[in-house]
Each structure stands twice: as structure tokens, then as C-alpha cells.
Amino acid sequence: MDKDQLSAYLTDKSEGKLTLLEVGRHDPIFKVEASQLIEVCTWLRDDEQLKFDFLCNLSGVDTGEQFEVVYQLASTSKSLRVDIKVILPYDGAEIESVQKVWAAANWHEREMWELYGINVKNHGKLEFLLLPEDWDEGFPMRKDWDAPDFIRMPEF
């Protein structure tokens, strides 16, 4: 299955739950609603043609207006790659944990929670992972974050 066939297959079989986005430059990127995330992820993992059994990466993104959560998936048996993107509002961003689908998501979600402040439902262990235990300066990866000892590189 090449990239175009994969896009067509996903658009076709997902019953409207996956929408192709134009931003993907190498692999197709699909948008999914936060409420349908688990259902879609389980289908992507279990479908006989797809078998996305490998979660490469999970990134939280702050675009300045909204949060995005991007799941990079790969299929080891079929050599496929696809990205799934969930768009969340800036206030009260919350997403369901995909740990039950791919256990690899655990630490990525904890990291996203501490660095961006995106709440992860049903995670089970939301504790600081990378930041010090006594960190109280907010969510450092947000675009508007600032602190007294944070030195920005001068423009030149």
C-alpha cells in the first residue's frame, strides 16, 4: 500500500471519523475528533490491512491559538506510516489516554501534561516526569510562558 492508497483507504473505511489534512509533507496527516480518538486508534491498530502496532511518537503542540496532539503511528508488518491529529481548545484542554491501545503512550502523555498543561483522562499516574518535583512555575513549553530567570536569545 503506498501513501495515496493508504489515504484513500483511511478516508474510505473510517466512516467520516478521519479527515485528511493538507499540512502533511511526507506522510498523510488525519484529523480526528477528541471524542472518537480511542475508537479510531483501536481500529487502526486492529484492522487487518493496517496493523498500526507501533506508536513512534506523541507530541503536544501549542500553536498560539490552540493545542494539538499528534500521534505518529507506524505499522511494523505492513511498513506504513500515518499521523493522527487531535485539535483541542486552549481552555480546558483534555484528552483521553491511549495507553490501553499502545502502552508506549504513557510517558509521552505525562510529558505533555507537565509541559503543556493538557489534561489526560484515565492516565493513572500523572506525576512530574522531566521537571523537578518542586516545580511551580507553570507549563514551560507554552508559547506565552515566561519566568524571571528565563533568558531569551537576542534577535540579530
Binding site: V23, G24, R25, I29, C56, V70, Q72, R81, D83
Partner: peptide, 16 residues
Amino acid sequence: AGEVYARIENSRGELG
């Protein structure tokens, strides 16, 4: 504007 996830095989595994 756009986004990409590049990944390669380095000595430890997938580097993306």
C-alpha cells in the same frame, strides 16, 4: 507551512 515527522534508524533504534 506544514509538518513532517522524519525518522531514521540510528544505532539505538528509531530516532525521530
